[in-house]
Structure formats: C-alpha cells, structure tokens
Design a binder for these strands. Structure first.
Lengths: 358, 358
DNA sequence: TTGTAGGCGTTATCAC
DNA sequence: GTGATAACGCCTACAA
C-alpha cells in the first residue's frame, strides 16, 4: 500500500528487461532491439509512466536542461522593452540544441533563484547594478555565463555593441545633412529614473548606466555641447514629454535656437518625440529631424519609418545561446562584438535654411 | 587528482561534523547550535563551496523550485501582449512563497520542455491549440496545473473571465448612449491569423479561438447583425487597418451606414481604430466612439483614455500562483472566475443625431 | 544486445 | 544537538 511512484524499474520489470535496458530504450542512446524497445514503451504506457524523472536524471548526468536569464528589472518592466524581448527570443533559438528552457530570474538581492536553481548556464542581460554580485555567485557555482549589455570586466565572455561609435555614426549623418543644432533624449541615467537635463561635462559623472553614457558620449563627439534631457524610461510617453520640452518654444524662440534635429537613445523615445513635434504643428522631417536607436518596429508609428541604428537584438540573443552551447561542450568562451546598421527611414532631412523661415 | 567536486561531505569533514548536520546548518531546518553552524559555514567558505547541489536536493526532496509557464505562441509574440506580461508579472508574485522561478515553455509539438523539465507546477496561458495535449502530458506526470484563458474542461482548475458578459456590458453601454450602428474589430479568429470580415451566423463556425468567439458573441447579443472584421493580431497597426476599412467610406457614404461606434476586442486594436479615425479627419468621440478591452495602458495614446473593460490581468496571474502554492500544499484546487470592471474613459459619447450632419 | 553494480549529492528519519 | 543510515530514481561503465 506504499504510495510508490512508478519508476523505470517497475517498467523494466513489467517488460521483462533490466532497468538499464529500459533506460536505453527511453534515451535512445545505446543499441536496443526494436522488439525490446517496443516492449518497454508498451509497459510504460500500461503503467502510465511518464518517462524518466528529470530530477534523478539530472543528478546523474549533471545537466538540468535549464538556462537562467537574469534580468535586472522587475520582470514586467523588462517585458516592455522590445529589445530585451527580441534578445530572449533569439536566446530561445540559440539554446535550442540543448533542448533547454529559459528560467526567468531577477537580479535581486536575496533572490533565491540564482543561488539555488538547477542551472546549466546563465545569461545576464543589462544588469549594471548588481552585475558583479551576480557574476560572483555564478562563478562560484562554476556555471558557464555570458553577459549581454553590461560591462563584466576581464575574463567574462560578453556580447557587446559599440554604442558610442554607433551613436556617433547617427550624429555624423545628421551633421552631414547640415544639422548644427541637435538635442538628445537619453535613456535613464541612473537606477532611480528621474527626468532632468544633463549638462555636458558637469553632469557626466551622474550617469551610472553604461548604455546611456556611451550613447550620449558618441553623440557629443560630433555635437559637443548638445543639450540632453534624460527620460525616465524607454517609452513613447517619455519621449513625448522630452520632445515637448525641447520643441515647445519653437513658436516663440528664433528658429536658430530650436533644435533642427533630435537624437533619441531608443526608438520608443524617438516615436514620442515625433508625437510631440506633430502635436506642436511641426512637420517631421521638414521642420525637425528625428533619429532613434534599436531598429525595432514601433507599433502604431506608421507611416513614419524611423531613422535608426538597427541593433541585431535577436541575433545577439541567438549568439549568446550558441556561445553557451559551445561552452557546455567544453570550448573556451570568447567575447563577441556585434555591429549595428544604420537605417535611413523617412524621419530625417536637411534642415531648412533660416532663409526658409521668414 | 580526481576532479572531485566539493560536496557537503567535504565541508562536514572539514568542520568536524556529520554530513547530515552540515545539511541542517545550510537549510536551517533542524536545531543546530550556533557554534556548529558557524563552523560549517566557515568550512564552506574555506572550500569555496557554493551550497547544496540543487539537483541532488531536488531528487531527495521532490521539489525543484521551478514553475513552468506554457505560452502558446512564439515567445517574442507573447511578450508583445501586455495582458500576458501582466499575468506573468502577477504570477511571479503569486509563487513568491515557493521561492520558485518561472520556466518559459512553448506549447509546441515535440518541444521537450513540458515533458522533461523538472517542474513543481505548471501554468497554461491561453493555449487553445494544443491545450488538451499539454494537459495530458502534465497530468500524466502528476504535476499540479492551472489554466488561464482557455477552456480546459472538467476537473482542471482554471481562472476564467466571462468574456461574453463583459463585452455585452460594453455593447449595452454604447446602446444606452444611443448607438445603433456599431462595428466590431476582433482578435484573430484562428491560429492562421488572417484578416477577414466575419458575417454573423455564417462565419461563426470558423472561429476557433475562444476569446474571440465569446467577445464577439457578447457584442452581438446587443447588436445582432453588427459587422465584424477580424484582425491578424492584437496590435495598433492592425486596429489601424481595420479602422480604415470600417470608416474609410465615411465621406462618400450616407452617415447612416457608417458605424457611430466601434468595439475593439483589445485596447491595442482600439488605439489603432482611433488612429484611423484621426487619419480620416473624424473626431473621437464626437464622430465615432471607440471602446476597447483589457484596461492596459497604451503607450503613446495620450491624451485619450480608452473606454474599456479592465481585466485584472496582474491579479489573475497572482491568483494562479497562489492557487498553485495551495495545491502543492495538498489542498484541493478550485476554479475561479474573475470580474472585469468597465472604465468609461473619454473615447465614447452619444452619437451625433443625423440632424447634426447636414 | 542485454544485465549487473555502483554511485551521483543530498536530506529524512531515526537513535543517541 | 548531533551522528549514522538509508533512500531518492536514474545512468554509465563494464561484463556477459
């Protein structure tokens, strides 16, 4: 009357074979005669046996079939970022050869997950804050790890983007079009996510988020004193607010002091800037050019196609996954730098000369 | 020289205690003297021992600390749905007492995950297609399961919404305002996601997705012959397309045949319909009223606040999680029906009488 | 092609 | 408060 769970041994007994043979029949590893395999599978069906217990298998094999993804933010927030979701999407493909699933983990103090979950490998995505702490945990456990969008330092394989060069490229493009008065809308500059102007030079030290700093620096390499306003998040509504602030005085100020172009550090922010321009009766790109970053599809932005740096988010995720697969195969991991591609879109043009604005 | 991994036995030996005692020191379960605990923890630190191997622990305890979430779609698509992400968000809170993580699984034929992952419990979200197959797998494994947004049938605990009644309520509200010519924009009606008109009666059988059918039926209980157009997905751009189709002829047709109100089956679709109206020079809500479903915040829709049925998505996720926790505690699971709340917003008004349109 | 033996690392249960 | 022992269910050598 013991509530004995059905095990592979029971199945083997019913099939009249040894447990090890049954194991082979399930895994398909060794060479088992068709007759035997069928007998085992039939026995399993008869006993309503659902297959080898993954817990026991994983103790034995050392593999759990689980890859952890550490996201810095509250999960709901991370899901709102199309770049992150694209990366997750690519990651699922990249680790497909493992037949593994993705375990969502938050990079949160005292969060049990990273310390105790049965993980074969880990991906850290954009965890600027507790990155080092998380890395320490993972390394101590001896789990292969790869970092995306974060400066992990020596010896940790990472997949990186040259955010500074990419943004400089956008700026150079606008400069070549003739723009000289360019403003910038940045991603949050610190974990607290407050909105504020970021003065060139004096405020640089405030910026604790790598991506924000690098992208801003790249733009200012071309437009040194360009005014920048930090948003509280990568959202259309945030871009709208910033855009209003930057463009609102267009009617009352001389055209020369109103930016002729705005560089936003994400496509969602750029979309908001475009909304702000429309709201103020400015035409894009005739009155103001707008460029973004990411290359995602902004739902609802049609007929505009943003000028943007297309970052290979899905590909980055896929590469990360592939990298982990190789590490688990015993290969030495390497860091990879990915390239962005500029897409012109239809939201930029040469600035109207002041002669055009009587 | 064997590459022997450090185990709890090694730690125990160094600390001069038995392995079982060391285990207690780590888990904090039994009664261990402070001195002993300190000795064990010190020994662990000295050996760089990262704590009990979760694989072995889970074999012993029968718990893996992992809850599976099965999403029907390609993960990238699921992440685009704010309702689903809100549910995931709530779910993480709901299962917090377990200290468990969420394992993302796709409801895909031959996908290994659901069959072999070490899962303590499973949540199926909106898996109309292979729902039964997935359920069978899970039940055979004897894993507690709960279903959200899907008709699981007898004996399976579910968290449901009365989509039909909720939509009828929206329709009744519009009817009370005086609307008689109402059109509907639906979610996809089948897995293939093609756009098409859905004739009342004749096309009903085509609809294989529960939510779509129920919400449509609810609207037609009030507006029996209402024209409906199925979208290819819950996106603003899809709502835009459908909205154009429904409203485009406004200028050339007599006002009487143009809908005075449109019910969209999701807020994103409704946002697109509003865009379409604006594009055509129609004012919302003066020229056309628009209502949605979900109650999410549509980024970029300001200053409109949608008239919509607010569904408690986060709460649903939380309840699902709490339910699983109880099941794992041995309680008998029960199904729960959640209620939506109508939010008026500012996108509906009484239709302009034909007298207003000379 | 199949069977035997041993151990993966932990924790529950008891006795002390 | 601590120690010994016995599973947990499976997989992989290796032997037959």
């Amino acid at each position: 009357m013991s509530a004995h769970r059905t095990t592979i041994a029971d199945v083997a007994r019913l099939a009249g074979v040894a447990a090890s043979t049954a194991s082979l029949a399930f895994s398909g590893k060794g060479t088992v005669s068709d007759a035997t395999r069928t007998r085992v599978l039939d026995a399993a069906a008869a006993l309503d046996y659902a297959g080898p217990d993954p817990r026991a298998a994983s103790l034995r094999t050392g593999r759990s079939g689980i890859v952890g993804v550490v996201l810095e933010e509250h999960l709901g927030v991370a899901f709102l970022d199309p770049v992150k979701t694209a990366m997750l999407d690519g990651l699922t493909e990249g680790i497909a050869p493992l037949g593994a699933g993705l375990l969502l983990l938050r990079d949160h103090e005292g969060e049990a997950g990273l310390e105790t979950a049965p993980l074969d490998a880990v991906v850290l995505i954009g965890c600027s804050g507790r990155l080092q702490a998380s890395l320490a945990t993972v390394r101590r456990r001896g789990i292969p790890v790869i970092v995306i969008d974060g400066d992990a330092g020596e010896g940790i394989p990472q997949i990186t983007l040259d955010n500074r060069a990419a943004t400089r490229q956008i700026a150079e493009y606008l400069h070549a079009l003739g723009h000289r008065d360019v403003a910038i809308v940045t991603l949050p500059f610190q974990a607290e996510r407050t909105r504020r102007f970021l003065e060139a030079g004096t405020d640089d030290a405030l910026i604790t988020i790598d991506i924000t700093r690098e992208r801003l620096a790249g733009a200012r390499e071309v437009f040194p004193g360009a005014p920048a306003i930090a948003s509280a998040g990568s959202f259309i509504d945030e871009g709208l607010l910033a855009g209003r602030t930057l463009l609102a005085d267009a009617a009352t100020r001389p055209a020369a002091t109103r930016p002729t172009a705005i560089i936003a550090q994400s496509d969602l922010l750029a979309a908001g800037v475009i909304r702000a321009a429309e709201e103020l009766g400015l035409r894009v790109p005739d009155d103001v050019s707008v460029a973004g970053f990411d290359g995602i599809t902004v739902d609802g932005l049609a007929p505009f196609e943003l000028a943007t740096m297309v970052q290979p988010a899905t590909e980055i995720g896929r590469m990360a996954g592939a990298s982990l697969v190789r590490m688990l195969d015993g290969e030495t991991p390497t860091s990879i730098s990915m390239n962005c591609v500029f897409r012109m879109g239809n939201t930029t043009s040469a600035p109207r000369s002041s002669a055009d604005c009587p």
